[in-house]
Simulated scan of single mutants.
Amino acid sequence: MEFRRSRMSLRAPTLAGLIEADGVVSRQRRNAARASTALRFLQDQPAVSPGAAMPAAGHLPVSSMKSDITACLPHVVLREQTRVEHERVEATAAMRHLFHDPLNVSSYAQLLRRYLELHAAWENRHATWLRGLVAVGWTYESRLPALECDLESLGDVSEAPVRKFESVATLSAWGALYVIEGSLLGGQVIARHLAGRFPAHPHRFFNLGSHRPAHAWKDFQILLDAALASPGDMRSALSQAKETFALFQTMFEALPANDRDGCIAQA
């Protein structure tokens, strides 16, 4: 997930702050804080009649127009309009434990198994669509091998049940993919913390984004913007992005109380 500023404790560093300190967040973030009004900008522009004189170049608010148009891009709208849902995920106890308390092996394995359940269900549901992304220039890397490797290294080799997801339109999968691909940014920060706690384990799942080129996230955003070309497409993707964040939140909150509390126990 592309993690953002949290309203959690002021005493502890937030995930968004850690990511920003590591220089992971795209510079485009500084250009778009007005997504809620940006969509109205283009709709409110007066039509120019055929043959009408255009305003003088010096009278065009170029910088303002550029900023508002940037805020209309689908990836920016998704980021701004899912901010609340994203912060709810960051505020879960399981997410806090990843950064501010020492995990034990059992708790770490339980968390990875939740991830495996979620990703297995989603990848199975959209397998054909994910394979077809190659045609538009994107190769989706399955999260399952990395999760299975990490669980095996922790001594957890049981089979994960595949949970059912509600049926969604194929195009709306772009909204879920935005959340899933964006999570690689925060995953790299999480991996560095886990490496200090469990140096003998590979942490392949959280390290998945480390081998990608620096421009990979920007490339994905360009493809996303091209795919969500109509208001209907955008609404569908936004709904699915919100649902995906909610699934992550539910996944973390569903951890048994003893596992959440066990996160502060020693291995």
Rank of each mutant, 00 (worst) to 15 (best):
R114I: 05
Y115I: 01
L116Y: 01
L116F: 02
E117M: 13
H119R: 15
A120E: 12
A120I: 06
A121S: 15
A121C: 11
A121H: 04
E123I: 09
R125G: 00
A127W: 10
A127T: 09
A127Y: 08
W129M: 11
L130Q: 10
R131T: 14
R131I: 10
L133K: 09
V134H: 13
V134K: 15
V134G: 09
V134I: 14
A135G: 02
A135H: 13
A135V: 11
V136E: 12
V136L: 07
W138N: 02
W138I: 08
T139Q: 14
Y140R: 03
Y140F: 15
E141V: 06
E141N: 10
S142C: 07
S142D: 05
R143I: 01
R143H: 15
R143N: 11
L144A: 08
A146G: 04
L147H: 02
L147Q: 01
L147V: 05
E148F: 06
E148C: 06
C149P: 01
D150N: 06
L151W: 14
L151S: 07
L151V: 03
E152R: 15
E152I: 08
L154M: 09
L154T: 05
G155V: 01
G155F: 03
D156Q: 10
V157F: 05
V157E: 11
V157C: 13
S158A: 14
S158I: 06
S158K: 11
E159C: 12
E159W: 08
A160M: 09
A160K: 01
A160T: 13
A160W: 00
P161N: 13
P161F: 04
P161C: 11
V162I: 15
V162L: 09
F165G: 12
F165A: 10
F165C: 10
E166H: 12
E166N: 14
E166R: 15
E166C: 11
S167P: 05
S167K: 10
S167Y: 03
V168M: 14
V168K: 12
A169D: 14
A169K: 10
T170Y: 03
T170Q: 14
T170M: 13
T170W: 05
L171N: 11
S172R: 04
S172N: 07
W174P: 06
W174Y: 10
G175I: 05
A176D: 08
A176E: 09
A176H: 05
A176C: 11
Y178A: 04
Y178V: 02
Y178E: 05
V179I: 13
I180A: 04
E181C: 05
E181N: 08
E181V: 13
G182T: 03
S183N: 10
S183V: 04
L184V: 01
L184N: 02
L185Q: 11
L185S: 10
G186V: 00
G187C: 04
G187V: 01
G187D: 04
Q188G: 07
I190N: 00
I190C: 00
I190V: 08
A191D: 02
A191L: 06
L194H: 06
G196Q: 14
G196V: 10
R197L: 09
R197V: 02
